[in-house]
Design a protein around this nucleic acid. Structure first.
Length: 643
RNA sequence: GCCAGCAUAGCUCAGUUGGCCAGAGCAGCUGAUUUGUAAUCAGCGGGUCGGGGGUUCGAAUCCCUCUGCUGGCUCCA
């Protein structure tokens, strides 16, 4: 007999060899039907795997991530089975579960799949699922595993096996299909009721662009048809929030084939929002002792040779532009930091004036691969809300904490609560990718880790994600369809001060090297706006809205009054327009609603006589009339409410 | 850059297997209407079917190529 401990602490005894499924059955039939995987002493197992020793167990269902991931992992096997049935000889890479579903990377030889093929594969998967085949786990020796896949001629699986230890290799078989797999899997394929193959993509084998590109088939499955429907509806909803769509509809920004791919063009309304964001940050930075500067969009190649950017990115950048006579070479600036280093250097600094905080909304240009461009999120020309802090080593932590506080202030103001923070460290195995010595890297990484700990911020550590000149703390946030983007960043840098020979005169009257912090709370105006648009669905908070109100006079005789109101509001620093088009009132209200203008003011005979406005809130209907002073007071209250 | 796909009027889309002057709704313009809380009515204009090349008696439709876009991969100072 063995003792099974449940999450609530109760202990029951079972015969040795009892499976998770049997344990579930002993509790209730309903639970047994829903069990997808089983946590055994912290490891996720198949429900059908016998438990031989005392164990703590957790039964996972569709409501648990562990249950979902087993479900989707098994769905990937089902996809593979369908592929093998339809396309004999297909070779398989890997087929893991992901956040929303699963994929399988396959090598179909010369065959190309199109969207029509996905329907066919889906049908086959449904047919195979109905067979309710169980997933059978089998431990195999390394030689047996090699033999199996040699016979099958699947070099990808052989490569994977090659990296595994003998004794830890398992196969899973459902129906006619056997795959190398560590598991776990759901009880049988019949639980997979709703199947949707979502898209096809190319993916390099093992993520290496020098190796073969496999066909990646993405899909998602559910235990109930209804859940698939809900999922698809949710995806449709998310598409409506897409900043590319809203940006065009609300006339915030545009792209032009003639101007060039990845070069956003800001329209008046988008620029209005940008300006308000920048004003907000400028005010915040002013309180914290930053000074604004402006630097040119190009700089001599030598500037970037000095900074190290040229050696690192020169080949993958817009190539230098030349002066016609002297053949001097200039680069479009990909970073503001070298310029800011030169600003620091323009005169000697005493330790008394440190930290020096230099800020700039600096527009930079980077060559991004054509396939990478994506709306405002990934562009070739963008404006960073950049600043560089030059401080003494002993001031580093304090400065870092202040920047952290600023970044949190920004995210808070925007109502972005679901961000994650990531400490991006160097990969010690590839020192050639980084500038500077191991000692300075250790110092810089330690400074970030300590400051983050002290601030109480929860952050993950990611090895190999650092910039080439220093480690960083990145803030990540998801867009409407769940893709994660880096917004704010804080970076500690000992390297550039050295390369630019920056110094300050210390209390000892000797030169010392300052430490540099690079930071951008928004990251870039472009990417920040893309996330802001998607999070607000284009319905900007009052303090950011390009037009805060529109006045709709009931008919022509009241146009004069409407313009009088506009003038009054302008004096109160409230901006908007009068819509005196010859259209029905219903029409003009509708247009304002569709344009997501926060406040609609209707004025007619009653309002003119009373000196009032009739207020309507976007998406929320008629709020009744108020005097203009009342409206201004109401506006100020609403404005403070933020997002 | 790589894989797969898409590109018809300002926007959203129709255009059977290549075959009459390429269509609709919205937007635009003109006129009528003077409006009280999400689309007033009528008339009119608008497209070298993304660019270039080819196949064909004939191409929006088939092929090649370039550009842009979409979803991934790689990359992201």
């Amino acid at each position: 007999m063995i003792n099974i401990t449940f999450p609530d602490g109760t202990i029951k005894s079972y015969e040795s060899g009892t499976t998770g499924m049997q344990v579930a059955q002993s509790i209730s039939e309903g639970l047994a039907r829903n069990v997808l995987s089983v946590g055994v002493n912290g490891v996720v197992w198949d429900p059908g795997r016998p438990i031989e020793e005392d164990a703590r167990i957790v039964l996972y269902t569709w409501n648990d991530d562990q249950g979902k991931s087993a479900f989707w992992h098994s769905s990937a096997h089902l996809l593979a089975e369908a592929l093998e049935t339809l396309y004999p000889g297909v070779k398989f890479g890997i087929g893991p579960p992901v956040d929303q579903g699963f994929y399988y990377d396959v090598d179909l030889g010369d065959r190309q799949l199109g969207p029509e093929d996905l329907d066919k594969i889906e049908k086959k998967m449904t047919e195979l699922a109905r067979q309710k085949n169980t997933f059978e786990r089998r431990a195999v020796s390394k030689s047996e595993a090699i033999e199996h896949f040699t016979k099958k001629g699947d070099e990808y699986k052989l490569e994977l096996i090659d990296e595994l230890e003998d004794g830890e290799i398992t196969f899973y078989t459902q129906g006619e299909f056997t795959d190398l797999c560590r598991g776990p899997h759901i009880p049988h394929t019949g639980i997979i009721k709703a199947i949707k193959l979502t898209n096809l993509a190319g993916a390099y084998w093992r993520g290496d662009e020098n190796r073969k590109m496999l066909t990646r088939i993405y899909g998602i499955t559910f235990p109930k048809q209804k859940e698939l429907k809900q999922y698809l509806a949710m995806v449709e909803e998310a598409k409506k929030r897409d900043h590319r769509k809203l940006g065009a509809e609300l006339e915030l920004f545009m792209f032009s084939e003639k101007v060039g791919a990845g070069l956003p063009i800001w329209l008046p309304k988008g620029q209005a929002v940008r300006e308000r964001l920048q004003k907000f940050l400028k005010d915040e930075q002013e309180k914290r002792g930053y000074k604004m500067v402006v630097t040119p969009h190009i700089g001599k190649k030598e500037l970037y040779v000095t900074s190290g950017h040229y050696a690192k990115y020169g080949q993958d950048s817009f190539q230098p532009i030349q002066t016609p006579r002297e053949n001097e070479e200039f680069l479009l600036k990909p970073m503001n930091c070298p310029h800011h280093c030169e600003i620091y250097k323009h005169r000697p600094h005493s330790y008394r004036e440190l930290p020096v905080r230099i800020a700039e909304f600096g527009t930079v240009y980077r060559y991004e691969q054509s396939g990478e461009l994506h709306g405002l999120s990934r562009v070739r020309g963008f404006t960073q809300d950049d600043a560089h802090i030059f401080c003494m080593p002993e001031q580093l932590k304090g400065e870092f904490l202040d920047v952290l506080d600023l970044t949190k202030t920004v995210l808070d103001k925007m109502g972005f609560e679901d961000f994650t923070a990531q400490i991006s460290l160097r990969d010690p195995d590839t020192p050639e990718k980084y500038l500077g010595t191991s000692e300075t890297w250790d110092k810089a990484e330690q400074a970030i880790i300590e400051a983050v700990e002290e601030s109480g911020l929860r952050a993950t550590k990611e090895i190999g994600e650092a910039a080439f000149y220093g480690p960083k703390l990145d803030f990540m946030i998801k867009d409407a369809i769940g893709r994660s983007w880096q917004l704010g960043t804080i970076q500690v840098d000992y390297t550039l001060p050295e390369r630019f020979e920056l110094e300050y005169i210390g209390a000892d009257n000797k030169p010392h090297q300052p430490v540099m912090i690079h930071r951008a709370p928004f990251g870039s105006m472009e990417r920040f706006m893309s996330i802001l648009i998607e999070h607000t669905a284009g319905k900007f908070p009052l303090w950011l809205a390009p037009d805060q109100y529109v006045i709709v006079p009931v008919s022509e005789p009241f146009n004069d009054y409407a313009y009088q109101v506009k003038t009054r509001l302008a004096q109160a620093d409230i901006t908007g327009e009068v819509d005196d088009r010859n259209e029905t009132i219903g029409r003009r209200i509708r247009d304002a609603e569709v344009q997501k203008i926060p406040l609609i003011l209707i004025v007619g005979e009653d309002e003119e006589k009373a000196g009032s406005v009739s207020v309507r809130i976007q998406g929320d209907g008629d709020k009744g009339t108020m005097s203009i002073d009342e409206f201004i007071a109401f506006f100020e209250v609403e404005k403070e409410r933020g997002v």
